[in-house]
């Protein structure tokens, strides 16, 4: 039996897992499931959860897993439950370093509409990038405070390059307190 914590930037789950008679058992969030987990090609898995059949892609990232549910991807950090609790008490937050806005595509930064120290709301346009001959508003992924702006207008950026860093804040869905 192993107990783990699975977290996204704004949600946390706890699961107990064990393996018996070629089946995985999962308990957590008030439910218990019997799972047949069989790997397919290309990091895809066939799951039969209590008789319900699913197919999901799971790719290993540097610090967690990317799960493709249908057509969207979700990033998860999976860690030992006890360690997660200790980290929480110590105030260590693995998601804090995720408080970044990165370039969704390679392109040219045309304008920067925010400054360090600004409080911004989710979906507020922060930058304008030109890519594929289109001007794209790059919007804030969260409500928070800007710590640093890593690019200047006229700069060419690669996909995934950091554009903006936010002050660490555990729950990006909730407004930052005064």
């Amino acid at each position: 039996m192993k107990k783990v914590q699975v977290s996204t930037a704004d949600r946390t789950f706890a699961f107990e897992l064990w393996f018996e008679n070629d089946r995985y058992f999962v308990r957590g969030e008030g439910e218990e499931h019997v799972v047949d987990l069989t790997p397919l090609k290309n990091n895809r898995y066939s799951l039969i959860v209590d008789g319900r059949s699913y197919e999901t892609g799971v790719e290993v990232a540097s610090d967690g897993y990317i799960v493709f549910t249908g057509a969207r991807s979700h990033r998860f950090i999976v860690e030992d439950y006890e360690i997660a609790q200790m980290k929480k008490q110590a105030g260590i937050d693995d998601w804090a370093r995720e408080m970044l806005l990165t370039a969704p595509m390679p392109g040219l930064v045309l304008a920067v509409n925010c400054r360090p120290g600004d409080t911004v709301v989710k979906n507020q346009p922060l930058l304008v990038m030109e890519a594929m001959k289109m001007e794209n508003d790059i919007k804030s992924p969260l409500t928070g405070i800007i710590r640093a702006v890593a690019v200047i207008p006229g700069q060419n950026v690669d996909k995934g390059q950091t554009l903006i860093e936010f002050e660490p804040w555990r729950n990006p869905e909730k407004p930052v307190p005064e």
């Binding site: 699975v6 996204t8 959860v49 897993y65 799960v67 549910t69």
Partner: peptide, 25 residues
């Protein structure tokens, strides 16, 4: 809306836990 409609985030989290557990085993 996309997040809400996108199936079960809990199931996705469980899948990540299972794949991780399988790797550990």
């Amino acid at each position: 809306s996309l997040t809400r409609s996108d199936g079960d985030i809990r199931l996705a989290a469980m899948t990540a836990a299972l794949v991780d557990y399988r790797l550990q085993l």
